[in-house]
């Protein structure tokens, strides 16, 4: 019996079985399919049971813990957005309102003034306003701030540490994994509950 002949017989048997509706191959295949269906469907049923205790309805956002931040300046460069969603924030109630401000003035500045060459901020985002002798108020112009954290470092080194970095949630696109968090050397960028999105310094 040559192969062509054999094949013809196989085909005939196959067609015959198709007609009678009882096909050995077919029913075996159906069994495998059903078994496979159950096998892949079961994780979908088990998963919600496993995760039911670990589910959070409100979700998370990313935020910088100002007490862990080392002002390395990578927030500016590593955010997926340009300019970065992380910006300088001012805790006014901590501020000393100094004339000689470590966050506003460049180190070694000849005079204490708002002249560009004296400012520490590369984009001129800190505004200085006279309140009363000898106090000055410093406010951040967020449109100009690019998150380089130079002022935060200056304020922490020479002042009260009232300037600190925070991720702005009106700008942040809330990546599944924050690319600043991935590279933050002090692991200061953490997930916080979405209903309390800021870690304020007080």
């Amino acid at each position: 019996m040559d192969y062509a002949q054999e094949n013809r017989i196989v085909l005939n048997i196959y067609l015959l079985r198709m007609e009678t509706g009882k096909n050995k191959y077919q029913s075996r295949r159906d069994f495998v399919r059903t078994a496979g269906k159950i096998l892949v469907a079961s994780p979908l049923l088990v998963l919600p049971v496993l995760l039911v205790k670990k589910t959070n309805v409100k979700g998370y956002v990313w935020q910088i813990d100002p007490y862990k931040c080392t002002q390395c300046g990578q927030c500016k460069t590593n955010c997926v957005l340009t300019p970065s969603a992380s910006k300088c924030t001012h805790a006014f109630q901590m501020c000393g309102y100094c004339d000689l401000c470590g966050g506003f003035l460049r180190q070694g500045a000849k005079t204490i003034s708002t002249a560009a060459e004296n400012q520490l901020c590369p984009t001129g985002a800190i505004k200085r306003r006279f309140i009363e002798e000898p106090y000055f108020e410093y406010t951040i112009d967020e449109k100009l701030c690019d998150g380089c954290a130079k002022c935060v470092k200056g304020c922490g080194d020479f002042g009260n540490g009232s300037l600190y970095m925070q991720i702005r949630h009106d700008i942040c696109v809330n990546c599944n994994e924050c690319s600043i968090a991935r590279t933050c050397p002090s692991n200061a960028v953490i997930r916080v509950p979405a209903d309390k999105p800021y870690i304020r310094k007080t």
């Binding site: 956002v61 109630q93 925070q166 949630h169 009106d170 999105p197 800021y198």
Partner: peptide, 10 residues
């Protein structure tokens, strides 16, 4: 009066 820095939500 010391102001508070306004931080916006998503």
């Amino acid at each position: 009066q010391t102001p508070t820095h306004q931080l916006l939500n998503q």
